[in-house]
Design a protein around this nucleic acid. Structure first.
Length: 753
DNA sequence: GCGTAACCTGTTTTT
DNA sequence: CAGGTTACGC
């Protein structure tokens, strides 16, 4: 098989041994995704397995999409029928088909975290509990944790250990909140994220015929990022694979960073117990990073006690040391990063997309953003508020949700008085209470409001009911796009946003249009086998912002941007030059993770993930003071930086002066496009080590015709002098590298003539 | 029921 | 700092 040529021995083993249970322990950068994709391709091409019989589970939609594309490259369009996706999306799809067996309609709503918390909040209120003790956040995590361990509300209330825990934290009523919450979700025909897994397991337990069907169908089951699976995910997967036992899990315990979400390394140990026939493969050669990076990362992770022994090594060049930069404030940190990116681009002929700035918390992106703007460096932020979480989008989605599922209590609460129709929170509460008192649906109460609530409010509610009915009629006759535009107009949402002429209002209006475009695209896409509004809603409920959001469409041809994201979202990605900012105690490691050894070790693994994203260069930054919760605080350098073997670290001292000159200068786009065109791939990996005696000269008298030396490009001759804003630039023809444009405030040159 | 202003509080990562 | 909640006047 020709596609096996690009694999090493260990990788090939992992690809061709397709029968029986196997576990691939894959170190960072060892080609794990490559093995997984080729394994699937091998099944289809060499073993003639029908893609219909293969199930492949990942954690992000992006990973699934990428893998599908890579498989298609090898096997062609055969890959279409593969069941490949995130745990949540695959099982949501399964539940949609089998919902009736659990008493759910197939158009059930998926509650996101916001919906769940707001429901919990009202339940806590209705049970007359103090929301200062029963904080919705804490309650949510507690219930979520139970569901992830497949503990039902009944089992929860009978469990003495959990009961004792709740009593000692002064929350004895937690089990009744759990019970009410489950009941309300069911009555609203809604499932939260955890239900998608919990109910799948329930379905398999209650209906063995359904389990049987899928067990026989999925002859091969593959799981990516196995270290991040929680108990419910593992249990479901195990059940599905238990007939054919061709299950292959791929993961790296050193990169397990989702314990807070219920992931447990225990699964790796259980796997060995559950499948004693197991074959274990190890991928230990790193193809991604320089030796310095691999060794530095190893020197950090060996501080962890909980780990599976393995030796990650590389035959790549030694590479540069890890730079460590100290800034006085968080803003200066941003400036230093931007300056360094600018410099590196000039000196190493790199493009924006070669850089990533990673941080622990989303809020740290601000300072970075500001300074990158000042330097006119294009960037893209991932994470934070995703498109589908914006207020205006959630508003219209709530309308669509309610039209599809009139049981959806959370959607109703959102839209019943939006735009304002004189139905205040008091009336809404009365409607909900009436519904539960008479044990009928909220929608029934609204339709017959005169019987339940007297007075002028009933007229407003009746009008609302008429409007929703007209929407429902529309939804039956027309496709998703037409329905959505009809509702956007008919509800008054579009008009309200159109009237708002502030910048934000304009943005919101555009976002709404963008959403309508997205629905249109969904309807027109021939790959979607179902294009109903309900199908669209299910899809967007599970979309996260690492996947392409409508925003991306606008700048399709401008992909050369610096990447800004949290370390968590960077997992699975790689960049030439990684900046890791905010390396301070209490921030990274986070102060919330200092209480137990296990938590601290998870933070350390997170640090390990960050380090191993880099191919060539890492810059660690920390600030001496930083604004946190509105207060200026002094910050100590992170303990993690001291854990790196000092022989891989280079402490950079920068004078404040070097970061000043760029202000007030607007760099033309031309300069950057020039850079890109000269960015010949052949030179993108330059490992020129400057001679120890290289002393940059004063370049104030530099002029055309002079002979100069550059630390990376060697000798060359100045062809042309010019200005870029107030900064002098020189075009130099290098003997071995051709013409480069250098900004003299940044480039280090030695003059020889 | 609505709008505004003063007050309070949390303070991590994501499907 | 930002977002949510409360108190109060209309």
């Amino acid at each position: 098989m020709d596609y096996l040529d690009c694999l090493n021995t260990a990788q090939t083993e992992g690809v061709i041994n397709t029968q029986g249970p196997s576990m691939i322990i894959a170190g960072a950068g060892s080609g794990k995704t490559r093995v997984l994709t080729y394994r699937i391709a091998h099944l289809i091409k060499a073993k003639q397995v029908d893609p219909f019989n293969i199930l492949s589970l990942t954690f992000t939609n992006k990973a699934a999409k990428e893998m599908r594309q890579r498989i298609e490259l090898v096997v062609g369009t055969d890959a279409r029928n593969l069941w490949m996706g995130t745990f949540h999306s695959v099982f949501a799809r399964m539940l949609r088909a089998e919902a009736g067996k659990l008493g759910y309609p197939s158009n059930f709503t998926i509650y996101d975290t916001e919906d769940s918390k707001s429901l919990l909040k009202s339940i806590i209120k209705e049970l007359h509990l103090d929301d200062k003790i029963y904080k919705p956040n804490v309650v949510y995590n507690r219930i979520s944790g139970a569901k992830n361990r497949l503990i039902s509300w009944k089992e929860y209330s009978n469990n003495p250990v959990l009961k004792a825990e709740d009593e000692s934290s002064l929350k004895p009523q937690l089990s009744s909140i759990y019970q009410t919450y489950v009941d309300r979700c069911f009555k609203a025909s809604a499932m939260d994220f955890d239900d998608l897994l919990f109910n799948t397991d329930l379905l398999f337990k209650k209906h063995t015929d359904v389990l049987n069907k899928y067990q026989h169908r999925f002859q091969y089951v593959l799981v990516d990022e196995f270290q991040d699976t929680n108990i419910s995910q593992y249990t479901i997967t195990k059940k599905l694979a238990s007939v054919h036992e061709n299950i292959c899990v791929v993961g790296d315990d050193a990169q397990s960073i989702y314990a807070f979400r219920g992931a447990s390394i225990q699964n790796i140990l259980n796997f060995e117990k559950d499948f004693p026939e197991l074959t274990i493969y190890r991928l230990e050669q790193n193809y991604r990073s320089t030796q310095n990076i691999v060794n530095a990362a190893n020197s950090v992770i060996c501080n962890n006690q909980a780990q599976i022994k393995k030796t990650v090594w590389t035959s790549n060049p030694t590479g540069e040391l890890i730079d460590m930069i100290k800034a006085e404030t968080d803003n200066e940190e941003g400036k230093l990063v931007a300056t360094t990116i600018f410099e590196q681009k000039m000196n190493n002929q790199l493009a924006n997309k070669d850089f990533a700035i990673l941080y622990r918390t989303n809020s740290q992106s601000r300072a970075m953003e500001e300074s990158l703007r000042k330097f006119n460096i294009r960037y893209k932020i991932y994470g934070g508020l995703s498109f589908y979480q914006r207020r205006e989008i959630k508003d219209i989605l709530a309308y669509l949700r309610f039209v599809i599922n009139t049981q959806d209590e959370q959607a109703l609460k959102r839209i019943i008085n939006l735009p304002k129709r004189g139905i205040g929170p008091g009336s809404v509460q009365k409607i909900i209470v009436a519904a539960y008192d008479h044990d009928i649906s909220i929608w029934k109460v609204i339709q017959n409001i005169g019987q339940f609530l007297p007075g002028r409010i009933s007229q407003a509610v009746a009008n609302f009911a008429i409007m929703i009915k007209s929407f429902r009629i529309e939804a039956e006759r027309r496709d998703a796009f037409e329905t959505a535009s009809f509702i956007a107009k008919g509800s008054g949402l579009l008009k309200g946003l159109y009237k708002d002429k502030t910048i934000e209002g304009l943005n919101r209006y555009e976002n709404l249009q963008e959403l309508l475009n997205a629905i249109k695209e969904f309807v027109d896409n021939p790959e979607n086998d179902e294009t109903s509004l309900g199908a669209f809603l299910q899809e967007v409920a599970l979309i996260s912002d690492l996947d392409n959001q409508p925003d991306d469409e606008k700048n399709k041809d401008d992909n050369d941007t610096v990447t800004l994201m949290t370390i968590h979202s960077a997992k699975g990605l790689e960049f030439k030059h990684v900046f890791l900012v905010g390396m301070e105690e209490d921030l990274f490691p986070s102060q919330m993770m200092l209480s137990s050894r296990a938590d601290l070790e998870e933070e350390r693994r997170l640090f390990y993930v960050a380090l191993t994203r880099a191919q060539e260069k890492i810059t660690l930054c920390h600030a001496a003071t930083r604004y946190r919760f509105g207060r200026l605080k002094t910050c100590e350098p992170s303990r993690f930086m001291e854990e790196i073997d000092p022989k891989y670290i280079n402490v950079v001292r920068r004078s404040r002066k070097t970061i000043q000159p760029v202000q007030n200068v607007i760099y033309s786009k031309r300069l950057f496009s020039n850079l890109q065109s000269t960015n010949n791939k052949k030179f993108s990996r330059i490992n020129h080590i400057p001679s120890p005696d290289f002393e940059p000269s004063d370049t104030s008298n530099l002029s055309e015709g002079m002979k100069v030396e550059h630390p990376k490009f060697g000798f060359g001759k100045v062809v042309e002098m010019d200005f870029e804003g107030s900064i002098r630039k020189a075009k130099v023809n290098f003997n071995n590298f051709g013409e480069k444009t250098l900004l003299l405030s940044f480039a280090k040159l030695k003059i020889h003539e």
